[in-house]
Design a protein around this nucleic acid. Structure first.
Lengths: 163, 163
DNA sequence: CCTGAAATACTTTTTCC
DNA sequence: GGAAAAAGTATTTCAGG
């Protein structure tokens, strides 16, 4: 699954949809300087190839009462892969956890989590994380403010590949 | 900007759009068991109130040649707020940086970054991060694999508020 | 591989109940 | 909140360059 062949127009389409995922095909075609039919052809191809994974609405955490964002570093006791599997399974069910990555370094997992307040956070750590079998260590850092928040991946490294 | 008043239908709309941001109003209305007109009324209101921040397409990093994901913890020398402002400004221009948070704890900033490979990563650290005035320390961890990847915020904590 | 045009099908929007 | 009508767009296909 290496990078396929994209031309400039493909990259424009991807860049545009990363900013506004609700554009109609006609609007998209305009912004990438193409007529609707080839634009739609390309779009379908990009969707089917899996480069475009999903279209989503991004919500504002603060407006939903989720005023506290944190990153939690978790390490597990090493007993084969049993704990790891269990932990992955549990994480996928915990709704506070938006993202979870298995990491290199001192900690095994990095969790990105949202909470209403510190009490909510405390319950999460006490009742879920620390109750979970194999969890050896938990360290948390809280987000003071968001300097940059985005979902858009860089694409310009692909521009050099094409003419 | 605390949580406004949402009823069950509002929450269904938000939950649905978090999963599929391209649904038309008619489709959305069907899935939340409402007719199109009140559904559109609610949607517009949710958009204008700012709960819905943006609609985006999510791309697949691996398909774009971005096989290396990392979290970089940065601390700055403490000299008033000058360095902090400069750093925030720089970060917003660095395309490798998807997210940047000012944090509590040992490190001042946590950066989520994507790279083609280790060489690309190395250039970023050497040429950008370490060249930047005031950067005192840089520590990196790499993502081994994604256990959970999402953009959907939890909403069920709001359900208890309503009847 | 793109353009343009034409037909078809939907969606949005509005008004009223 | 629902229904229906009207207007406006989008999608899709096809012929042609």
């Amino acid at each position: 699954m290496p990078a396929q062949h994209f031309d400039k127009t493909d990259l424009k389409i991807l860049a545009t949809l990363q900013r506004d995922g609700r554009l109609s095909n006609v609007e998209l075609a305009e912004t990438v300087a193409l007529s609707p039919s080839p634009c739609l052809r390309r779009l379908k191809q990009l969707e089917e190839s899996g480069v475009i994974r999903q279209y989503v609405a991004l919500l504002e955490p603060a407006r939903l009462g989720l005023g506290l964002q944190a990153f939690v570093r978790v390490s597990l006791e090493k007993r084969g892969t049993t704990y790891a599997k269990q932990f992955s399974e549990a994480v996928s069910h915990w709704q506070e956890v938006i993202n979870c990555f298995a990491m290199t370094g001192e900690m095994d997992y990095l969790l990105q989590v949202y909470f209403e307040d510190l009490e909510h956070f405390s319950r999460f750590v006490m009742d879920k994380l620390l109750q979970h079998p194999g969890v050896a260590d938990v360290k948390s850092s809280f987000v003071l403010h968001e300097v940059k928040r985005s979902t858009a991946l860089p694409l310009n490294h692909l521009e050099s590949i094409l003419s």
